[in-house]
């Protein structure tokens, strides 16, 4: 099945502003950067975590620890689906008694976040887990919500949302893709 772009929901400037706002919101909610750690879900969430950390350091002047998390081994559909590629998980700080801010590009069913929370718990007991996403597209299948949202985008289940990041895709932005009706 092929996909074509239905709409652009975020351009590079909008993403830049959203990330800056989220950085400020994280600092406001946690009263500074002293007790937080960012953990990005592979692969685009990890890039997002690094960008947020840069902004937080610019604003507060203190570095924030950043990690990346691969949730392949925690998925609830291992029996039917294997991640083609497993990335290394690297959390270079102690999550114990820290507020861990999980970051991911798109929030959809919530199953990825459920798996990520289980994974974080295996590293220790954080004082809190918060969630930051660039796009919330709805259709949750679990009682999960984001604390920091770049943009809420109403979508149909048949559509796909793709967040583009310069690190992977050459440019920043977010688009809704729909079936182009051409089949295979």
């Amino acid at each position: 099945m092929g996909y074509r772009v239905k709409a652009e929901v975020m351009d590079a400037e909008a993403m830049d502003r959203a990330l800056t706002r989220i950085a400020h919101e994280i600092l406001e909610a946690n009263k500074g950067a002293g007790t937080i750690g960012l953990v990005g879900i592979m692969t685009r969430g990890a890039d997002m975590a690094r960008r947020l950390a840069e902004r937080i350091e610019r604003i507060e002047g203190t570095p924030v620890p950043v990690g990346s998390l691969d949730i392949s081994f925690y998925r609830d559909d291992v029996a039917t689906h294997l991640s083609p590629e497993v990335h290394a998980t690297d959390i270079p700080f102690d999550v114990e008694s820290r507020a861990v801010v999980l970051t991911d590009d798109v929030l959809y069913t919530g199953r990825t976040i459920r798996a990520a929370m289980d994974a974080i718990m295996d590293y220790g007991r954080p004082s809190a887990i918060q969630l930051a996403v660039l796009v919330d597209r709805g259709h949750r299948e679990l009682p999960i919500r984001a604390d920091y949202v770049g943009k809420n985008v109403p979508t149909a289940r048949t559509e796909r949302v793709k967040v583009l990041l310069a690190e992977h895709d050459g440019k920043d932005g977010a688009v809704i893709l729909e079936d182009d009706g051409k089949g295979e």
Partner: peptide, 21 residues
Amino acid sequence: LDTAESFAEVNQRRIKKLPTL
């Protein structure tokens, strides 16, 4: 071997258990 590298990281953790299987 690449997949095993990810599992080697798990074996260094304090909680050496995954819910995978």
